[in-house]
Structure formats: structure tokens, C-alpha cells
Simulated scan of single mutants.
Amino acid sequence: MKKLVFFVSLASLFYSCNKNDAIPDSITQEQLLIPQTAYAISDVSSARVTATETIEAEEFAKLLALSLKQKDIRAFLKQEANKTFDGDFDILVSRVAEFKIGNDKFSERIKKNAPNGYAKGKEVFDNAIKNEKLNISIPILIDNWDDSRQQPLVAVAIGVSEKETKYLKAFDSNGKTYLLDAKAEPNVPVIVVGNNERLNYDTKTKKTKNARTSGNYEKITWIKCPNLGAIESWYYGAPELRFEGVVYNDSFSSAFLAFTKMEYPPSRSHASNGYTLSAWTQTLNLFEWYFDANHGPDYYIQSYEIDDDGTTQEFTVGVTQGTKASGAGIEGSSSQTASFKLTYKAQDKKLAGELIHYTKSSPSSISDGSIQFTLEN
């Protein structure tokens, strides 16, 4: 009987411990998310900026960070970012300014959190939203964010340079300022105030004629960015990829731009791990055109990561029948040459390009150190 009492008491103790452990006190506590790559600074003058747009973005970021003390604002931000209206975890501020959180508009809720009163909050919000590209994003680890209790830092990516910026300024919900490593990806979610990179692109395919295989589409079916950090910093989220194709006519005397298409990977992790287009789009076809007997059997495809900033750069892609050109040889008896100039901006990243001949096997893999994609027909 004593043994029975002992086992019953031990079982009761075990149940009691499990019951208490199942609902720890910390589950109801608010928590600041401070990345390992961030450190607090007290002398904010050392990180002072002078550009008006950046100053206004910083003031908006401070106001947004203070607003994160409110659970329903955090829930709203996570919900809107997860809608991926432009393919990435972005929230265009002008698009959601009138959206409701409870009985108030999003814009009003943010304005009310200014420590110096509503009038100051209105001034900060109205100044910032003059920037039509003003964007709030959660570029990394959004699925790891417990918005019911966690308050991330709010970083500012307006006015930064991917090549030169070492630290982003960031703010917490208590009004403290941090410097956040711009090169090393944080280990916890971060909210970023920046410019939306996906507003001004023509995403419509320019259809012409298929120069490779009569009756079939040419398409990209798989894309991967194995060294994503080299072409798109973490605070910009998923990359913006552009593909262009130049078609040469049958006599190799002229060339023309046959298609331009933007591709938006669904997330940063999909871009770095590789993804199949059919999982995220209505069709496998990233680009397509129809066969025309006047077109030659070759086209040149070029890829980029687009930041759309800086001076215009240009380069020539061409093919010479009978000799090597653009890294590929086209055999023939004549020496006709066709070439075409392609352009991009200085802050864009020019990635892999290749001349495709009709005899090239399908599928065909094209890659460099920063992008890999598979072509099929």
C-alpha cells in the first residue's frame, strides 16, 4: 500500500510539473527581438544623415517601431506582408494607409504613437508618405515571428548603398537606436523601411516569334541564386530578376529584342534554395514566342538582378556566322554578323548570359556564381 501511495504521489508531482511547464509565464510577456548582428548606440550623431528623404524615413521608422508595442499593429503588419502583393513580403505604405485596424485607419494608428503628440505624428507620417515608393517589409524569417508577443527592430534601407553601406540604422519599440550589420543576415526577423523595388517594371511578356523550335514554347522552368547575398542584400528581401532575349534573323544580318520579362521569386529562401516556376505561376513559361522562317536558329538570353539605380550601362551581344562570338561558335560558310546593344543600370547586377543554338540540348542549364536557371523547349 505504501508503494502505491508513493507512485500516485510521484505521478501527481509529474502531472503538476508538466501542467506548469505547458504554460510558461514567458508566453504572455512582450519580447524585444534584437539580432546578434546589432548593437545599441547612445551617440546617434555618429550615424547622422543629411538627405531629406532618409531623415524622413528614419523618423517614420522610429514612429513605426514605437507602434510595435501594440499587438494588433504587429498582427496587421505580419498579415499584410504575408499577402505578398508584389511577390515579396512587402507592404506599400500608400496602399495600406486607409486600411482599418479595429476602428482606426492604419495611418491614424501610427500617427497616434508619436511621443510628442498626434500633430507631430501626422507631420512625420505625411512627410514620409510623399515618397511614393515608401515600403515596409519583413524580408527574412517572417514565419518565425510570433507577432502575439515579439517586437522586432525597425531598420532603414533608404539612402543605403549595397556596395558601400556597412550598417543600417534601426530602432526598437522603446526608442533606442541600433546599428545593424548590413552584410550579415540577422538571426531573427527585422522590419525594414525602404523603397519598394517592384513598382516600375513592365512585367508583360513581349511576344514575337519562336526562333528555336517550331510549334513549341521556349521556357525557363527552374531558377536558383546560390550566392544571393552577392546580388541582393538581406534587407531588400527577394531579388528582382530580369531576363532579356535577342533573336537573330536567318541571314545573320540583323538582331532585335524579342522579349523582356521580370521574374519575382516568391521569397528570399526560395531564391537561394531554388524553385520551380510551376509552383508559383499559372504557367511554366517565363517567356515565349512563335516560329518564323525568317528568324535564324539562335537567340541570346541575358539575366540580371535589378536595382534600377545609377547610370546606364550598355554591352553588345552578337553572333557571327562561321566564327566564335559571345562565347559560342556558329558554324557556317558566310561571315555575316548580327549584334544588339542591351542596357542596364550601374547598381544592377549583370548575371549569366548565353547564346542558344537550335541544336542545343533541352533542358539546358545556364549559370554563373550568382544565378542558375534551366531552359526547356
Rank of each mutant, 00 (worst) to 15 (best):
K130V: 10
N285M: 09
D172H: 08
G215N: 09
S45F: 07
Y290D: 14
E244H: 02
I27W: 13
K122Y: 10
G121T: 08
T205A: 14
L134D: 09
A114Y: 07
L199V: 01
N187G: 13
L4Q: 13
A119N: 13
T52V: 09
F373S: 05
N18R: 10
L228C: 07
I73P: 04
N144F: 14
L66D: 06
I371M: 00
T260G: 13
S339W: 04
L286K: 09
L141V: 07
Q313L: 14
D143T: 11
F256S: 12
A119S: 15
S333G: 10
K71D: 06
T316M: 09
D250G: 06
E59S: 13
Q321H: 12
W145M: 04
N249P: 08
N82A: 08
I371S: 01
K122H: 07
E240W: 04
R95S: 10
T208K: 12
T213H: 13
N20H: 12
T50N: 04
I73N: 04
R95E: 15
L241R: 03
A211N: 15
T28G: 08
I27D: 11
Y300I: 11
Y300Q: 05
A346E: 14
S367K: 15
W280Y: 15
D250A: 14
G117V: 02
Y264P: 06
P152M: 06
K130Q: 15
E164I: 04
S148H: 12
L64S: 05
R48Q: 15
L284D: 15
D147C: 11
I91A: 00
S67K: 05
N285T: 12
P189A: 00
P139L: 05
S303L: 04
D43R: 10
L342C: 06
D202N: 14
Y304K: 10
S326I: 07
E314W: 08
G237E: 03
V192L: 04
K83R: 11
Q36W: 09
L199H: 03
W222L: 07
G353V: 05
A114N: 15
L77A: 01
D298C: 13
V188E: 00
T52L: 07
S253L: 08
K130P: 02
S16Q: 10
S9T: 12
E56Y: 09
K360C: 05
I220H: 02
P265K: 09
D368K: 01
K206W: 07
L199E: 03
D202T: 04
V188W: 01
N273G: 09
K112I: 11
N187A: 14
G121P: 02
D43L: 06
Q321P: 00
Y299T: 01
D43E: 14
E288D: 13
A258M: 10
L153S: 02
L10M: 14
S9I: 13
L68G: 06
R149D: 08
Q36F: 10
F315I: 08
I27N: 09
T312V: 15
F89E: 11
F291A: 10
S94V: 04
E240F: 05
V96A: 02
L77V: 03
T337A: 13
V193M: 05
A128P: 09
R95D: 15
I91C: 00
F315K: 11
D308F: 02
A47W: 06
A230D: 14
N200A: 12
S253K: 12
D368T: 04
A81V: 03
F287V: 07
I110V: 14
K183F: 08
Y358W: 05
K83M: 07
V49M: 00
Q282G: 14
N174A: 12
N196E: 06
I306C: 03
K130C: 08
